[in-house]
Nucleic acid binder design. Sequence first.
DNA 1: TTTATAAAAGAACGAACATTCATTTATATT
DNA 2: AATATAAATGAATGTTCGTTCTTTTATAAA
Lengths: 196, 196
Amino acid sequence: MRTRDENKEAAIREEAIKMIVKAGFDGLSMQKLAKAADVSPATIYIYFKDREDLIIQLWTGEMEKMAAATLEGFDAAMSFEEGLRVQWMNRANYFMNNQLSMHFMEQIKYSPYENLSRKKMNQTFISIQGEFVHNAIKRKELVKLPLEVYWSVAYAPLYQLVKMHMTGRGLAGRDFKLDDKMMEQTLQLVLKALKP
Amino acid sequence: MRTRDENKEAAIREEAIKMIVKAGFDGLSMQKLAKAADVSPATIYIYFKDREDLIIQLWTGEMEKMAAATLEGFDAAMSFEEGLRVQWMNRANYFMNNQLSMHFMEQIKYSPYENLSRKKMNQTFISIQGEFVHNAIKRKELVKLPLEVYWSVAYAPLYQLVKMHMTGRGLAGRDFKLDDKMMEQTLQLVLKALKP
DNA sequence: TTTATAAAAGAACGAACATTCATTTATATT
DNA sequence: AATATAAATGAATGTTCGTTCTTTTATAAA
């Protein structure tokens, strides 16, 4: 039998993400995607059940890559400050080096597809985060707070800054570029907020 | 001549937002919208130039309402803590009471329509924010930082929490409900981070 | 009451859509 | 070398899309 050409699937995934980022979900046409990925429309349906399945698979694929990058060099037993710094920097670097992927994930996050994909979220990733926060609170290195509040204070500012950096525009449409100094300053503010 | 029935435009706007929130931008069909708003497809084109114009007008309309609500009782000359608290609470209340609108705005924020709509952003709103931050830094009630860093630390956590509240799910798909106590706690953390 | 005019409607347009069908092609196994 | 089989294709399917055309309807001004 004929063997699969894995390049084809990769090309489809890559072009689909490009297309969604550039033109939104309603800009993702299967026929245009086939043309961009240099395959037949029918070929897409060998690798993906349908349009919705394609989008969900894109999401889970990118999420997994990001989760792996985030946890590099991280250990749930680390001190709060060290652990937060490692994850913060991992995230920041990953986003800065994978802006297309980041943009795609932000787009899907607030779309109706999010509900469909949520159940596929990596459970290990989540439980490591939970353990880390639990440890830090027990050691009194982190104020006592719900997991969601921790998450919001710790990472939402970083996400916001990276998003502004990606578009090149900050508040009031000002030119904006996120640099190391600004990132370090924000991390310090976050630590100040979270340490007892 | 026949007079405009303003209810028609309102119905179109309302149903369009509902439709986008429920099914995303690719779920917004002009013919389905016409049916939902109980008008003819052609009628939509009396009030809106085309589909894109409709979406941009929805965005600017909702933005204006939100900006107005945010500034209620606020004055750029207020002390930092008081001013931040007023805006924080205004935002929180507005979002909690207008979840559909909030959801719609989050969706458009990360879509390609955002670029098209940005230039229409209310400039007064932005300059008031700038003035407030400038004053607070000068009075040494706020650490010296770029406007974007301020914004990210001050409001991104709130947005994140409200979004989780809207979906009813927090981290790891846990049930999540944002209450007054949690909101107050987060505001305190933010103030701690930002005060010198 | 008549007239002028914009609002509103419903049917219709070609274009683009997601998906499938029938056929050809490449390769691992025999 | 022959066979079996899944990959890959291009054309075709019926459907839905955004938008416009022509006609009818309501009302403000005459």
